[in-house]
Simulated assay, not measured.
Amino acid sequence: MSQAHYFDTPQGRRIAYHKTEGQGPCIVFCGGLKSDMEGTKAVHLEAWARDRGLAFLRFDYSGHGESSGAFEDGCIGDWHEDTLAILEAVTEGPLCVVGSSMGGWQALLLARAIPRRIKGLVTIAAAPDFTEDGYWANFTDAQKA
C-alpha cells in the first residue's frame, strides 16, 4: 500500500489522502463517522477503480485516521469543509461521489455545494439524519438545554 499524502486546508487542518490517477469522472469515497480511508469499502473500491483505469480519491476527515486533530473537536460542518478543500486541491472536473453512512451525508452536502461537478452519487446506508434520530431524540431536557 502506498504512503498517504497530506494537504493543509485553509482552516489549518491536515488531511491525509490517497489518490489514484486515471480517467474521470474521479470516484471519491467519503467514509463514515469514526471510519478512516483504510476501511474495507474504500480500499476495495479503489482497487476496482485502479483495475479499470479510473481516477479515485479516498481521504480521512480531520480527527479521523491519519488526518490531524481530535475527533471530539470536529463536527459535520468541519468535515464538509475538509471534503470541499481536498476536492478543490487534488481533483478537477467531474466527480462520482460514493458516501458510506455519515459519508452519505457528506455526499449530499457536496451535491448541494458543487452540483455542476457531481456526475454520479452513490450512498451506502446513508445517515443524513443520524444526529436527530440517533442522538437528539434520546437526550434529556437538561442535555438539550
Rank of each mutant, 00 (worst) to 15 (best):
Q143H: 10
L54M: 14
E38G: 06
A113R: 11
I118Q: 00
K41P: 08
V97S: 06
A4I: 04
F71S: 00
K19T: 07
A4L: 04
R117A: 03
M102N: 01
C96V: 15
H44M: 15
G53D: 14
R50W: 10
Y61T: 07
L33Y: 08
E21R: 11
S2R: 10
G77I: 08
T20F: 00
R116H: 12
M102C: 12
K19H: 13
D8L: 15
G63K: 07
A137I: 07
L108A: 08
E38Q: 15
H18R: 12
G69H: 02
D78L: 07
F59H: 10
E81F: 02
E72I: 11
G65I: 01
L57T: 02
F29G: 02
Y17N: 04
R13M: 08
R112V: 12
Q3M: 14
W105L: 13
G12A: 08
I118K: 09
G69Y: 01
R14I: 01
A42S: 15
H18I: 05
G53M: 03
K34E: 13
A111L: 04
L84G: 09
P115S: 10
I76A: 13
D78R: 12
E132P: 04
F7C: 07
T20N: 14
G63T: 04
D129T: 13
T91D: 03
C75I: 04
A70Q: 15
S100Q: 04
E72T: 08
M1Y: 04
D8P: 10
A127N: 10
G53K: 12
V43C: 15
S100I: 13
A55P: 05
G39Q: 12
V98L: 14
T40Q: 12
G77R: 06
L57H: 03
E38K: 15
G31S: 11
S101Q: 08
I27W: 05
S35Y: 06
A42Q: 11
A137Y: 04
D60Q: 09
V97T: 04
M102Y: 01
F7K: 08
G120T: 02
E46C: 10
D36S: 12
V97H: 12
D141T: 09
G24V: 02
F56E: 02
W136D: 00
M1A: 14
Q106A: 14
W79L: 01
W105A: 06
G39H: 09
S2P: 11
P115F: 00
E81T: 08
E21P: 05
W48F: 14
T140E: 06
R117E: 03
Y6I: 09
T40H: 14
